[in-house]
Amino acid sequence: MNIAVVVRQVPDLIEPLEIAPSGTEFDFGSASFLLNESDDHALEQALLLKEAHGGHVTVVALDFGDVDNTLYTAAAKGADRIVKIARDDAPPPPRAAAVLYAEAIKPIAPELVLVGVQAHDELDGGVAPFLAAALGMPYVGVIRGVAVGAEPGAVAAFKEFPGAVMARMNVKLPAVLGILGADQPPRYVPVSRIRGAMKTTQFEESAAAAVSSEPLTAIARLYPPAAGSRAEMLSGSETEIASRIVDILAQKGLVK
C-alpha cells in the first residue's frame, strides 16, 4: 500500500511559551520544537501497516523547527521517502497548511493518507479534514487503529465512541484518516539508527513551496487565560481540617 504521512512540529511545552511584544504571535526565539504526538502515532500506524502487508511510506513535512531531526528519526524507523516543503517562516494556520500538504501529496498518489487528528497549534481547525477536502478524499477522524480489510481497496479503521463502544469501519481508498493512536505506541528508535539515517537519507524538496497560502484567520490578541476561582486550601490542625471537610460535604448535600 502506498501511504503518505503528514508530520508536524509543535513547540515543546517544557519551556514556558513567550508571547511576542506584538501580542498577536508567539516568540519562538528560545523555544524548541518536537514531533506532534498524534502525528507520531500516524507514522507508527503507517509503518505497522507496511511491516504487516508491505508497501511504501512517504513522510511529508513543512521545513520548520527541528524538523530534520524528526525526519531522520522517521527514516530510521523505516519511512521510505521524505518530502520536505521549504518555508521561510513559521507554518501557516491549518487551513492554509493543508493546501501546502495537499500539493506535496498529490504527486505521491497515495492510497492512504495518515495524519495526527490533533496538534496544539490548530488555530482554525484540524489539518486532517482540511487536507481531505484539499485532496478530494473522504475523511474519518479520531482513529485508534487501522487494519487491512477483507475487501480489496479498503481498510478497516477503528474508532472508539463514548460509553466504551468500539466501531470498525470499512473505509474505501483513497482516504485520509485522522489518527489519535496507533495499534501500538510508537517504538523507541536508538540514536545509532538515527545517526545512520542522517548519513544515508536524502530529503526531497516539494514544489508545494511555491503555492501561496493566505491565512483565512488572523489572531487579534494572545494572552494567558485569566485565573478562575482558585482551590481553597485547608489549614489548621487535623481535627480542624476534618471538621471543615465535613462542613463542606454537608453544604454540598453529600452528607447529612
Binding site: 515543546d12 517544557i14 505506541p185 517504538r187 523507541y188 528508535v189 536508538p190 540514536v191 545509532s192 539508527r193
Partner: peptide
C-alpha cells in the same frame, strides 16, 4: 534496544535523555 523493544518507562527515560 536496536529493535525498539524497551519497557514503557525506559522508553520515556531514553527519549528524555535524547531530547533533554
Amino acid at each position: 534496544v536496536d529493535q525498539g523493544q524497551v519497557d514503557e518507562g525506559l522508553q520515556d527515560a531514553l527519549m528524555n535523555f535524547q531530547r533533554y
